[in-house]
Design a binder for these strands. Structure first.
Lengths: 340, 340
DNA sequence: TCTGGCACTCGACTGTAGCGAGTGCCAGTC
DNA sequence: GACTGGCACTCGCTACAGTCGAGTGCCAGA
């Protein structure tokens, strides 16, 4: 795989041109637009090598070259630098995010902002419950045998769930239950609660035992097992930019994939390392998204990560710009959350 | 506008055929597929009249006829009966909606169900706050100058909002505040609260006055002014059915409209009368949706209405079936809510 | 009022031809 | 050995002409 500097430069030029024009790029136009200092014939030879190595391909004979997924990968890894944000973008981010009034608001603003700036489909995961701690648990009696359980997490998330009690429970007992669960659980990570919840049942007074058992079941179900991850989506209309050229003519699989929360979470939620992740075309494990690329990263207050966010677009996307925007937005959101 | 019975039958046949085949329908195929008891020539004469009256049109000379928006309207109003649901559909609805665990769950299941049954884009509005009553208000101290206000409505909706207090407020005072707002507001409709909230400030003890003022502002903002209506969406992938024929080739405007919550709320949220509403093509006031039809209705426990739901699809849609499904789903959801 | 017949229209499809962007290869030069 | 200019070739795109056929409008007759 002897790719000298010039061949890399040719690849970079092809990617940049193709992203800009959306048309296969030929050797002649390439030397015209970029100062490569060599003739078209030489570029053609280089192209032949790049094609051999699988970085570019010809849609058909007598057409220019188009980068392959592998070509984009090389471009992203070795040929591009993260583009600094324009002052206008920076301002847009700041303006957009101030004045957010609660978590819902923050998430919605963020996802719209991301979609607008990148002109692609944006996805923002709500702060993960698994990475949140309990700030407060509230029990609101609906009837004598029904409670509304409200959990407030330190990330600002609020989850509620109806609890059907096996037997009527008087108001005083509800107060006791409330005190007990709060004493035991407040401050602990949700992922660490199962043993605590277990202990809660065992330690509770006999007359509370029944209610507490039901309550604990619901608690475990809601907060731990059914990892109730939520997310917000925006910018699907951006999929129609670039006519029907992107996504080989059919938006169908993409739209289908976007409806599957599980799929999206996998895409942007696994942001273990705090670095930005780029998945290009085929690298994607979801079949429906083989024609798309995803740029995602984690966000959270300070250096911790509580959730993921990212964008999805055609493989033919402006990677440097998109990566920069995604990172910047994630950083701003993190700062915003840190203020809480 | 003398449209005798046969002309109406011809129109009905045209609509049904076109909806089924998606192809302009000619006089010959029409008499073949439907027992009209007359010759193609006669049908042609009727068609000419129908076209004159604006109920059908020809995409081009030497093509069959296609219903106009006006034609669909006449069809819906006078030529179609609501199709009874198939047992399979009935079962699907029941199966889908049992086991819903909280409001979010109900809404999400409903919207997916609607999308699946109608094979169109489904929209479900959360129970409107304006039509809800306060069941409980909770104040959770986050710090000495910050409270989390949580409002639980009788419709199951839970809204939260951060309150920044002007001065630190001790825990005892928070207890007092909680008691006061609950005493005053629980049980009242949200739309009726403004005077009550006002009174709350005036009647509160001097040392609570400052905090109560801030609190009341937030209350009014969150619950009344910023009519925080939420909605859920599903089935956008269904827009791609029928190739690019529907929506005159561009999904763009549709997708854009679907991103605007305000627009959607207007579409399905204004379900004043409990009857089903059908908006066909041009009747739609949103420019982006001139190529689409919307079938919507209100839902709620018993005969009250707390929100709207509906579907959006091409004007060429199976109106009788869609209307039946939308109504049935709304009724089931209403029953489900009544159980709470 | 309905029907059969007939001439007409016009989009869809097919085949052909010319154009041109772009390529691969090769011989020649530095 | 690396680069370049030149040349023949490929093949998608566009334009154009011709054919086909579904569907129509109209009219005379039952």
């Amino acid at each position: 795989m002897g790719l000298d500097d010039r061949k890399l430069a040719v690849l970079r030029a092809i990617v940049e041109d193709y992203v800009a024009t959306q048309e296969p790029v030929g050797s002649k136009t390439l030397v015209e637009r970029h100062q490569l200092g060599v003739s078209p014939a030489t570029v053609r030879n280089d192209m032949a090598v790049l094609e051999e190595e699988g970085y570019i391909r010809q849609p058909h004979t007598s057409a220019g070259r188009v980068p392959t997924d592998r070509g984009y990968r090389l471009f992203v890894d070795r040929l591009s630098r993260v583009k600094p944000l324009s002052p206008a973008e920076r301002r847009a981010i700041e303006r957009f995010l101030v004045g957010a009034v609660d978590l819902d608001d923050v998430v919605h603003r963020t996802v719209r902002l991301l979609a607008q700036l990148t002109r692609q489909v944006a996805v923002v995961q709500y702060p993960s419950l698994a990475r949140s701690s309990v700030r407060h648990l509230e029990l609101v009696p609906i009837s004598t045998t029904r409670l509304m359980l409200v959990m407030i997490a330190d990330t600002g998330r609020v989850e509620q769930r109806l609890v059907e009690l096996p037997t009527p429970v008087p108001a005083d007992d509800v107060t006791d239950l409330r005190r007990l669960v709060n004493e035991k659980l407040v401050g602990s990570r949700l992922s660490d609660t199962p043993p605590l919840v277990q202990a809660l049942v065992e330690e509770s007074a006999p007359h509370l035992r029944g209610a507490m058992t039901t309550l604990s079941t619901v608690l475990l179900e809601t907060l731990v097992e059914r990892t109730e991850e939520r997310l917000a989506l925006a910018g699907t209309a951006n999929l129609t930019r670039g006519g029907l050229l992107d996504f080989q003519g059919s938006l169908r699989p993409i739209l289908e994939a976007l409806e599957e929360e599980v799929v999206l979470l996998k895409l942007i939620g696994e942001a273990e390392p705090s670095t930005t992740r780029v998945l290009i075309g085929d690298e994607n494990e979801v079949d429906n998204l083989r024609a798309a690329s995803v740029v995602s990263t984690g966000y959270g207050p300070g250096s911790t990560i509580v959730g993921g966010l990212g964008v999805l677009g055609p493989t033919r996307m402006d990677y440097p710009g998109t990566i920069a925007t995604v990172r910047a937005v994630a950083r701003y959101v993190g700062e915003l959350l840190a203020q809480n």
